[in-house]
Write a protein that binds this DNA or RNA. Sequence first.
DNA 1: CTGAAAGCGCTAACAA
DNA 2: TTGTTAGCGCTTTCAG
Lengths: 350, 350
Amino acid sequence: MRSKTQTDGAARIGIHKVASHARVSIATVSRTINHVPTVNPVLAARVWKSVAELNYVPNTQARALVSGKSKLFGLIISEITNPFFPELIQEFERAAVARGYEILIGSTNYEPEKMELCARRMLERNVDGVAIMTFGFEESLLDRFAGEDIPVVFIDVTPRHPRSSNLQVDYRAGIYEGVQHLAVLGHRKIGFISGPLRLGSAETRKLAFLDCLRCAGIKPQSAWLVEGDHTLDGGRDAMQRILQLPEWPTAIMCSNDMTAIGVQHALFEADLKVPADFSLIGFDDIHLAEYTIPPLTTVRMSCKDLAQGAVTSLLANMESTQSRFETRSKINTRLIVRQTTGLPKMSSAI
Amino acid sequence: MRSKTQTDGAARIGIHKVASHARVSIATVSRTINHVPTVNPVLAARVWKSVAELNYVPNTQARALVSGKSKLFGLIISEITNPFFPELIQEFERAAVARGYEILIGSTNYEPEKMELCARRMLERNVDGVAIMTFGFEESLLDRFAGEDIPVVFIDVTPRHPRSSNLQVDYRAGIYEGVQHLAVLGHRKIGFISGPLRLGSAETRKLAFLDCLRCAGIKPQSAWLVEGDHTLDGGRDAMQRILQLPEWPTAIMCSNDMTAIGVQHALFEADLKVPADFSLIGFDDIHLAEYTIPPLTTVRMSCKDLAQGAVTSLLANMESTQSRFETRSKINTRLIVRQTTGLPKMSSAI
DNA sequence: CTGAAAGCGCTAACAA
DNA sequence: TTGTTAGCGCTTTCAG
């Protein structure tokens, strides 16, 4: 059923057709389109002409098969629905496509099995490298990639592992600025809504917060340390739990911006005002943070740095011939003050 | 240093190794893993055992090369940064992965050249089908895909084209509900902030709005029809332009939710209240719409329907042996009333 | 500098 | 039912 009709428009033009059309060998065509410098310019010109006329597009699959490189990067994220990740993806895509790579995206939705599935999908497609941007994961996963000698880059975690790079986020700097900012305004009762604590980085952020609190001479109160899940709903729920407490903090820091937006919503529903009743600080500085009402004070972590760092590391790692290759680079954070922070509300218990 | 040590884990296991390990031919391995029913169960068992022990993962590239099917879908969107699209992607991914397909995502960012680039990327990677979810595009693009006989699915536009499917969104229904809702509240002065009008669907939405206005017996006022660009910034700017006008509308409908959130921000900056000073209706019903302050009344367009419809069409289209294959399916819209709509402010000019 | 030829890992005839 | 074999479209030695 397939080969009979020649009229079918079908079957892509292959290197063979180009070769005969340009009256050269397929090897010459291959060299030309791969910009091998030793090709006779006259022949090259003929080839390019044929390529254009026949509308030839090289078949990446075949290329991948013979070269062993798929020109594909895997990008594993937590949840595409959290705006931080699309911003990350955008930068990652930009960097990757500019160098001729495509991206395979996998979302774990914070479920370990999904992570496993993602790893398998990436392996099957033969990715040349994987960026695990989930802010925490089972280290056993790395073995799968290590087994195939596939470069991996990830955040925070520092497993001892060949062909892996590490992007170290300096949470402390930004969070410290946040705590200081609050302290200067007069806040002493500061709560923290964390991410899912089984995520390493969520834990790290919380620890950084606690540490900063101590540095600022403020005693953390465990009731005000509540676990969220980095989603809008999670932030709202967490705040509602805090509102149930006998004593309220005067300020809340959140492990990410989505949580903070959820908090704003909970407060809105409870008819409480930001920053009059509660000061609020987010984390990430997604574009939306500027657009919340009121605009969100937050700690910026550049997803552009993250994305570019990831692509760069992957590339460097691939080029390196060392069987062991480990890097780490630092990602900075800093406070962006907008309008969700203000003087603490003077409660009955002065 | 790589091949000597067998322990190296290196170089992926191929079908060959599995075959010899299971003491069968590679053909039998191939048949087994492809679930060809005629394989002797005993041999099959041996094969599966070897597959597991050797941790064999089939090489998709090779498969694609010989079978001619890449098991890859292209998904072209406008802007990954607009939360509507991640929600779409999530559903699309779910549907595609469940059937063994991977997704290649390309963003056009509303730039025609980017669209061209996306098409090329998809072609190079040999996608089995493309979903163009940009709500408008140059039809010339379709020719590229048609030339390769690649199924395409898209929104609204209905070009005459083989192997194409069409998802027809019923904008009118939801928009009409919105206009009616406003009319019932007493609004007669209703503005509309459209998307970029060179996008077909943005134009369609605007036309639908105008038509609904007429049906409700309201005369549209051209000064209140302003062009946005479907982004937060665009929405804010558009609203600021409206605030410059000598006479204000009492309600605003937006071509998408991001625009509406931008509008809320502009109003916040101008110290105007929603819905006291302006009623506001969005479009899309992204998850965030529930979390804006106050929560956004909006027209819901199910991105799940869109995504699933797209995948289903693509699949059906591929299976069809007809060289021409056209479908269209309908996507419904409906109003979700939340808290950004209320009675119109009684202006000086009663 | 160019061309012929050998595969990359797999599927699908075809033969046994 | 199983194994042998011929490619899929391309890159890459290796001769010329």
